[in-house]
Design a protein around this nucleic acid. Structure first.
Lengths: 216, 216
DNA sequence: GCCCACTAGTTAAACTTTTCACAAATTATC
DNA sequence: GATAATTTGTGAAAAGTTTAACTAGTGGGC
């Protein structure tokens, strides 16, 4: 089943499937059916099959999926078979926390450099990662083979930082600044907005509970 | 336009609109049209109108929306007209970083308490917020009038923490643990998965750039 | 080697979300 | 007060996503 464009919803789920497979492999399982995966992790089996079928025929009818084999496929599809070097822009509270978080989440992502505009921070080492001058981003990014940037600066600086990142050829950016950004053609931007998430919970709390007990 | 259930996509956008309105108000604007908002923040004007119309007729035809008035409406709809007390479960790297982050993001959310199972952490004060024993969650949550909980514990503990939270009557939970959770009926769970976000960027990098320059 | 149980891949239907397009309402202008 | 210029609110179309149902392989048991 070949298709032009794969939805981001699908690729996000591939990450989830991969994680589930790791868990099953850890438990010593050799194969798993789409139904088995679905039951265990509260997913829909048809959706799993469909998501996987976009990329090839990985399963065996009557058997299911060989876990090790499917893990390899997904790892490759997601580009996790090679290392990625991450730069975090903004060595403030959030930036350093993210650096720490990703450093200890064992994965193919290495936080290779922090960047800041504050001269008192530049040159410091935070958890073994040096803070560089944001104005030298292009050279430093090249030196460390950065391919993913994380924006963790205050909202008002996010747009100009994004521009700086973009011109130095970075293609993948994760943004934590709570502000809509104008995204250059060349860049894939993924925004995580911690404020929106909280406010959406607040909305839920503000709703009058339904009298009939129907799910909201 | 009354409707049974409001989509979460809609309520998330309400947060965005509210933020845009704050910015416009700060710039001294008095009214704004859906088209004006859309242009300025890269949204779709019909969608803005529709999202707002779910909750009432806030606009004036021929004029647009009165910014102050609409802000008040949205603030109320999102339940941001009253304070919320947040508990963060897990006083590790991520938990403390989030506590810090939310403490300084000026908003109606106050991080009132941290919780952990590690006895060496319990009793400590981190950024002015005390760490309590997770086993006393129900009493402590009651004492601080907690209405939102944030799960920032390792994946393997997330499910049991969620259960503990749920039984003590908390209705809104934000989860940072990268694992699918079984959610009790009474709870609204919002998961933010920092790993999936990164992996989805990795997928993008792994894709061969399209020869015809079509957008991917 | 044939049948049965099982399960992937796929087509089609159902559902959700976004976008379009226009009638209805409002203000400014003459 | 009629006319033109706006701009909302909304019904309908379009696009996208999920779920269900079905077809076609696969392997084990006999």
């Amino acid at each position: 089943m070949k298709v032009d464009k794969i939805s981001e919803l699908t690729t996000n789920r591939l990450s989830v499937y991969l994680r589930c497979l790791k868990q099953l492999a850890g438990a010593g399982e050799k194969t798993v059916s789409s139904e088995g995966l679905a039951k265990k992790f509260h997913l829909n089996s048809a959706q799993i099959r469909k998501d996987l079928a976009y990329f090839g025929e990985f399963g065996v009818r009557g058997v299911g999926y060989y876990i090790d084999e499917l893990r390899e496929h997904l790892t490759k599809i997601l580009g996790l078979d090679r290392p990625h070097n991450v730069a975090i822009i903004g060595a403030g509270r959030l930036g350093t926390a993210l650096a720490d978080y990703y450093r200890f989440a064992q994965s193919n992502f290495t936080v290779a450099a922090l960047f800041d505009a504050d001269s008192t921070k530049i040159g410091q080492s935070i958890g073994g990662v040096e803070v560089f001058d944001i104005n030298n981003f292009p050279q430093t990014a090249e030196r460390f083979s950065i391919d993913v940037a994380v924006i963790a600066v205050p909202a008002e600086f996010a747009q100009s930082v994004l521009q700086q990142i973009a011109v130095s050829g970075i293609k993948a950016v994760m943004n934590f600044a709570p502000i809509p950004l104008q995204v250059p053609e060349s860049v894939k931007l993924k925004t995580v907005d911690l404020t929106i998430s909280l406010e959406s919970l607040s909305y839920f709390l503000a709703q009058p509970p339904l009298a009939n007990g129907k799910k909201n």
